[in-house]
Simulated assay, not measured.
Amino acid sequence: MKKLRFGKSKFSGKGFYIALAISLVAVGTATTVAISKTIGDLSGDSLNLPSTSSVSEWGYSDVTKDVDNTKSDIPKVSSAAPSSAPASSQEPVSSAATQAKQAKSNTYAMPVTGEITKEYSNGELVKSETMGDWRTHDGIDIKGDANTPVKACCDGTVKEIKNDPMWGTCITLEHADGYTSYYYGLSETAQVKQDQTVAVGDVIGTIGTTNQLEIAEPSHLHFGMKKDGKWIDPTSVIK
């Protein structure tokens, strides 16, 4: 039997390294080819990317052109402020009762129906038949028998009821607009009370014989009026 002899291989030494280098070159070439093919598959055509014309300048797809921004069933909101209902041009009409009451409150009437026997002197001195001297006559004397009803000359309030030593029983009424009326020489029994509200024509008393300053004259009512605290002629208010 022959002995086997092992000698140096043809790949030993330098030959081995040459073969290794060739293998590495082959692997590198194959890798390069594979990478090139992959890059080709990833090109813009194979991915079907949208063209740059459909991309807005902000980098978002411009899809507004495909959206219908109009909708017919949405109500429009007006920017103007809601207008208020126009005010009525007509003033509310007062009832007939209210108008009659207002007219009545401004009505003045004589407290007694009768002849004026002595007029308002307007600051002038006139002779007193009872006292025999000269003095102003700050009212009017209306002729009337004793116990003749005396009425309020206007709507008002009873301010005072008093018994004066000279003028006798006196009643004072306050009215609107600064007017005050005075009734002198009444009988001692008054038919109203202080602070009582009266209407024009209400009976407040009767003509008496208590007026000592004018007792020498025929029976009458001494009636005076003031406006804002000053004596006035009653006939300038009562027509």
Rank of each mutant, 00 (worst) to 15 (best):
K118S: 15
A109E: 09
A100W: 04
E91C: 02
Q90Y: 12
V93G: 03
A85K: 14
V112R: 07
E91Q: 07
P82A: 12
T117R: 01
A85W: 05
K104D: 09
E115S: 11
S83I: 14
T117Y: 00
S89T: 13
T117H: 04
N106I: 11
S83T: 15
V112E: 03
A81N: 13
K118H: 13
T117C: 00
P92K: 05
G114K: 13
M110P: 01
A96H: 07
G114V: 10
A87W: 12
A96N: 06
A81E: 14
E119Y: 09
S88A: 06
I116V: 15
A100P: 07
Q99I: 01
A100Y: 10
M110N: 03
A109P: 00
Y108F: 12
A87V: 15
T117D: 08
A81C: 06
Q102P: 01
M110A: 05
A96F: 10
Q99W: 00
G114T: 08
Y108P: 04
K104R: 11
Q99N: 06
T107G: 08
S78Q: 04
T107L: 02
T117W: 00
S84A: 12
E115C: 01
K104L: 14
V93N: 04
A96R: 06
T107P: 06
K104M: 09
E119H: 10
Q102C: 00
N106Q: 10
S88R: 12
T113E: 09
A100K: 09
Q102M: 10
V112L: 01
N106V: 07
S83G: 11
Q90I: 12
S89K: 15
E115K: 08
A109W: 06
E115A: 02
T117M: 08
V93W: 07
T113S: 12
A87L: 15
A97D: 09
S78D: 14
K118G: 13
A85R: 15
S78K: 05
A96S: 14
T107A: 04
E115Q: 12
Q99A: 10
A80T: 11
A103L: 13
S105G: 05
A87Q: 12
A96E: 15
T113A: 11
S95M: 12
S95N: 06
S78E: 13
G114W: 01
A96G: 04
S105H: 04
V93R: 06
K101D: 05
P82N: 02
M110G: 01
P86F: 11
A100S: 03
N106K: 05
P111I: 01
A81S: 15
K101M: 03
K101I: 06
A85I: 15
P111R: 07
T113M: 04
I116F: 06
P111Y: 03
M110D: 00
A100F: 02
P86T: 10
T98F: 10
P86I: 07
P86D: 08
P92H: 09
K118Q: 10
P86A: 11
M110L: 12
K101V: 09
E91L: 11
Q99S: 08
Y108A: 02
Q102A: 14
S94M: 11
A81L: 14
S79M: 05
S105F: 03
T107V: 00
A100D: 09
A80Y: 10
V93P: 01
Q99R: 13
A80V: 05
A80L: 10
Q102R: 10
E119F: 10
S94L: 12
K118C: 02
S79E: 03
P111S: 00
I116D: 09
